[in-house]
Amino acid sequence: MTKVKITIGGINKDAGSSKEYKTGGWRTMKPEVDVEKCIQCLKCFDYCPDGAVKKTDDAIEFDLDYCKGCGICAKECPVKAIVMKVEEK
């Protein structure tokens, strides 16, 4: 990670800057959505601890930069539109 110049008192003026830290690399399982099955109830959005679910026009998609592969979305999906697959690296 590139280092930054320190600030007085370590005050961080860059709100939301953790987005620079990509946690997708932690993942061993990867979610996949079946767009046909998705009813856009957005339970997966609500229950994602990592803010890695994005709404699209007709379904949802995953932001794999941050998804840690916990599998909550797949488990909570009421229509079983999400499956977890082994991450290929």
Partner: peptide, 17 residues
């Protein structure tokens, strides 16, 4: 002069160093 907590310009004080 070094910053303050204000919703108009959000900052984090007391970071993990």
């Amino acid at each position: 002069p070094h910053g303050k907590l204000d919703p108009k310009e959000p900052m984090t004080f007391g970071s993990l160093g």
